[in-house]
């Protein structure tokens, strides 16, 4: 078994590992680095539970190899809160009851974060389209959409205050 060296920055911390080329990025995060907030729900890149940011772009980490991410900046759900202060999306998902079982939530939050980076003031249709690659089986998306809308407002307000 040949291995290759991978060095990534995860949530601001440099992490390194020797991995098989076939190791999926989600397994590097979950099993090698112990960052189990990123979930696997489908294997076919439909459900989005494994969504993270790679170099600022949202990505489905079950359909990416760890070696492809060598040198990349990675952000996962574990990197969203600032200590005790929740990210506005985390706060909004809590406030709006935007989660039930919580399994899709990390991927949903990461995708929403990317979406709001692209479009700070999305319409409801744009929010729904923006999370169309993330499946939730519990909420019917109603409160997820409300949460993203709340967070968009909070982020815009924070931006305006700067």
């Amino acid at each position: 078994m040949t291995t290759q060296h991978v060095r990534v920055t995860v949530n601001g911390t440099v992490r390194e590992a020797d991995v098989e080329p076939r190791l999926l990025l989600v397994h590097l995060l979950r099993e090698t680095f112990g960052l189990t907030g990123t979930h696997v729900g489908c294997d076919t890149s439909n459900c989005g539970a494994c969504t993270i940011h790679v170099n600022g772009l949202s990505a489905k980490s079950c359909t990416m190899l760890a070696v492809q991410a060598d040198g990349a900046e990675i952000r996962t759900i574990e990197g969203m809160a600032d200590g005790a202060t929740l990210h506005p999306l985390q706060q909004a998902f809590w406030d709006q009851h935007g989660l039930q079982c919580g399994f899709c939530t990390p991927g949903m939050i990461m995708q929403s974060a990317w979406l709001l980076g692209q479009n700070p003031d999305p319409t409801e249709d744009q929010i729904r389209e923006g999370i169309s690659g993330n499946l939730c089986r519990c909420t019917g998306y109603v409160n997820i959409v409300k949460a993203i809308d709340q967070a968009a407002g909070a982020l815009r307000a924070a931006d305006a205050a700067k």
Partner: peptide, 21 residues
């Protein structure tokens, strides 16, 4: 009442079966 279980889920700190090592 806002849910008491949510703080762990929104941080990715839930413990699902695949997280058990």
């Amino acid at each position: 009442v806002k849910r008491k279980e949510d703080p762990r889920f929104i941080r990715g700190a839930g413990e699902y079966i695949e997280d058990v090592v």
